[in-house]
Amino acid sequence: MPADGLTDGLTDGPADGAMDVARVVRRNYAALVRLLVLRLVLALGLCALPVVLVRLGVPNVFAVWLLTVAGMFVAAFTFYRLGYGIRVARCARVLRHYPLEFHTRVSKKGEKWTRYGNVFTVRVSTRGRHGAPLMKAVNAAGRRCWPQGLDGGVWVAGDLPFGGVMVAPDGDAMLFLKPADWDKLAPQRAQAGAERVERAERAGLTQKTTRAWMMRPGA
């Protein structure tokens, strides 16, 4: 992907007249908050349900209070994902330094479940171009499902030998990208000029990221 051009920050207007970058980031922050709030509500409900059931006449037995234990696990997992599952800020950092460019093809080659989130193997390419690398992708807002509406192409920002961001055409889904085989693309990164490397460093894309740690901050 070309690495020329630099956006100094997120703007309220659409990028290149096609995609509103700031709106994409806001939507994904909102989706992340909704996900966390929903899980916290579920956790609180499970913790409170035994008290309600006992007051309604259900026998006060150990099995009823197991719901509280389940609620505590949901709450703990929610805070765990809060620490290890947030990628929106990381994607926003990439978007501050790279413009979005449209790619006409994206294909999902595989999918792996991890405790940090589902990690997809994808190939993002443009018709008429060959040699697009395999990439690992995770949903920035913590969703586990593969986004809908990608058949017609996606918006991508970044420098694929280092990584980047993939945005669905409707702007509702944003995925963080890293090379599926980091070492395989080492020659391409080595041949990158100083300007490209410096830009990737500013965007936070120069560190190796394995599949298992795709959702961890700083990985």
Rank of each mutant, 00 (worst) to 15 (best):
Pro2Arg: 14
Ala3Lys: 02
Ala3Cys: 13
Leu6Thr: 11
Leu6Lys: 05
Thr7Leu: 11
Asp8Ser: 09
Asp12Lys: 08
Gly13Trp: 13
Ala15His: 03
Gly17Arg: 13
Ala18Tyr: 06
Ala22Ser: 14
Arg26Lys: 12
Arg27Glu: 09
Ala31Val: 07
Ala31Lys: 11
Leu32Trp: 12
Val33Pro: 05
Val33Phe: 07
Val37Glu: 05
Leu44Ser: 01
Gly45Phe: 10
Gly45Ile: 06
Cys47Gly: 14
Leu49Tyr: 04
Val52Tyr: 01
Arg55Asn: 08
Leu56Gln: 11
Asn60Phe: 10
Asn60Gln: 15
Asn60Trp: 12
Val61Gln: 12
Ala63Met: 11
Val64Lys: 02
Leu66Tyr: 01
Phe77Ser: 04
Phe79Lys: 06
Tyr80Met: 13
Arg81Lys: 11
Gly83Glu: 02
Tyr84Gly: 00
Tyr84Gln: 06
Tyr84Phe: 09
Gly85Leu: 01
Val94Asn: 00
Glu101Ile: 15
Phe102Ser: 03
Phe102Glu: 04
Phe102Ile: 08
Arg105Ser: 12
Ser107Gln: 14
Ser107His: 11
Lys109Arg: 15
Glu111Asn: 04
Trp113His: 13
Arg115Gln: 06
Tyr116Glu: 14
Val119Trp: 00
Thr121Val: 11
Ser125His: 06
Arg127Gln: 12
Arg127Val: 14
Gly131Cys: 09
Ala132Leu: 15
Pro133Val: 10
Leu134His: 12
Lys136Arg: 13
Val138Trp: 01
Asn139Val: 14
Asn139Trp: 01
Ala140His: 08
Ala141Gln: 01
Arg143Lys: 14
Cys145Asp: 14
Gly149Tyr: 08
Gly152Asn: 11
Gly153Phe: 04
Gly153Pro: 05
Val156Asn: 00
Val156Phe: 03
Ala157Pro: 06
Ala157Met: 07
Ala157Asp: 05
Gly158Phe: 02
Gly158Thr: 08
Leu160Ser: 03
Val165Lys: 01
Met166Lys: 02
Pro169Leu: 00
Ala173Lys: 07
Met174Glu: 11
Lys178Ser: 12
Lys178Ile: 09
Asp181Cys: 08
Trp182Ala: 03
Asp183Arg: 14
Lys184Met: 08
Leu185Lys: 02
Pro187Trp: 07
Pro187Phe: 07
Arg189Lys: 10
Gln191Met: 12
Gln191Thr: 10
Gly193Leu: 05
Ala194Glu: 13
Glu198Met: 10
Glu198Arg: 15
Arg199Leu: 12
Arg202Trp: 06
Ala203Ile: 02
Gly204Ile: 00
Gln207Met: 06
Lys208Thr: 07
Ala212Asn: 10
Trp213Gln: 10
Met214Val: 08
Met215Lys: 03
Pro217Glu: 00
